[in-house]
C-alpha cells in the first residue's frame, strides 16, 4: 500500500468499481488537500465521471479506500457520504423537471454549518432569482449549470465534486463558471473537477490527474503544465 498523505481532505486508495459485470475502475490513487482545486483529465470513457460517482457511493460494487477528513467512506451509502459533507454536481446537471427552480435549489438538505444563504447564491447567479418560479428544466443550459452548482453551495458541504460543468456551454458561460470556481477556491472550498477541456482546467486548477482506462496515469502540477503540454496532448488525444 502507498503511504497515506497527511492532512488530505480526500484520499482515495486502490479504488476499484464495477458496472454490473464490467470492471471500470482498476485501482485509483489520488488525494486532494483542503482548499485545493484538482482536476481529473482524460479522454471519453477513461473513468473520470465513474470515479466521482464511486466516491459518492453511486456504484453498487466497489473496493478500496475513500477517506474524507480521515473518515473511511468506501462502504457508506450515498446518503451518508452526502451527510458527511461531500456534494456532487452530475454531468447531466441533474435538474429536476418536476421541481421549480426554487425547489431544485432548496432540495439538498443542509449537512453542515457555513453554507451559503439563498441570498448569496442569488447574488452569485442573478438569473436564478429572476426565474425561481419556472420549471427547472425550462432554464437554458448555462442557467441549469448555475442551478446545479448553486444548490450544492447551500448545503455547507466543503468538498465539491463537479462533473464537466463546462460541457456544451457557450464560451462566455464557460468563463463565468471559471470565475465562480476561482471564487469558491478563495472562500476555501475544495473542488474535484472532471474536465475534457484542459485549457479551461489550467485556468482554475492547482493540480491535474490524468486518467486512462480506469486508472490514474500521471499527475501534473498546474505550474508545470506548459512544460508538459506535449505529453498532455498525447494523453488526451488532441
Amino acid at each position: 500500500m502507498p503511504e497515506t498523505t497527511p492532512n488530505a481532505m480526500l484520499e482515495v486508495r486502490g479504488l476499484q468499481a464495477w458496472y454490473g459485470e464490467s470492471h471500470v475502475l482498476h485501482g485509483i490513487d489520488f488525494h486532494v488537500q483542503q482548499g485545493e482545486v484538482v482536476t481529473l483529465l482524460g479522454r471519453n470513457g477513461a473513468g473520470k465521471s465513474t470515479t466521482l460517482k464511486t466516491i459518492m457511493g453511486m456504484l453498487k460494487r466497489r473496493e478500496g479506500s475513500i477517506k474524507f477528513r480521515g473518515q473511511e467512506l468506501a462502504a457508506a451509502t450515498s446518503r451518508h457520504i452526502a451527510r458527511a459533507g461531500i456534494a456532487f454536481c452530475p454531468e447531466d446537471r441533474g435538474i429536476y423537471s418536476s421541481l421549480t427552480v426554487e425547489e431544485n435549489l432548496m432540495l439538498p438538505p443542509v449537512v453542515a454549518e457555513g453554507g451559503m444563504s439563498v441570498a448569496e447564491i442569488h447574488q452569485l447567479f442573478p438569473n436564478l432569482a429572476e426565474r425561481r418560479r419556472s420549471q427547472g428544466t425550462r432554464l437554458s443550459g448555462g442557467e441549469q449549470q448555475m442551478l446545479a452548482i448553486g444548490r450544492i453551495l447551500r448545503t455547507g458541504a466543503r468538498l465539491l465534486l463537479l462533473d464537466e460543468p463546462t460541457e456544451g456551454l457557450a464560451p462566455v458561460i464557460v468563463q463565468q463558471i471559471g470565475a465562480i470556481i476561482r471564487k469558491l477556491k478563495e472562500r476555501g472550498y475544495t473542488v474535484v473537477l472532471v474536465e475534457q477541456n484542459f485549457h479551461f482546467a489550467a485556468t482554475v486548477a492547482d493540480r491535474h490527474y490524468v486518467m486512462d482506462h480506469g486508472a490514474i496515469v500521471d499527475m501534473i502540477p498546474n505550474s508545470e503544465i506548459d512544460a508538459h503540454a506535449e505529453k498532455l496532448n498525447s494523453y488526451l488525444g488532441v
Partner: peptide, 19 residues
C-alpha cells in the same frame, strides 16, 4: 418536493443526502 425528486431521479436524490 422530496417525493417528486425521489420519483424523478432516485439515485441522485439519495446522493444529496435525502433518505
Amino acid at each position: 418536493s422530496w417525493l417528486r425528486a425521489a420519483t424523478e431521479k432516485p439515485q441522485l436524490t439519495e446522493a444529496f443526502g435525502i433518505n
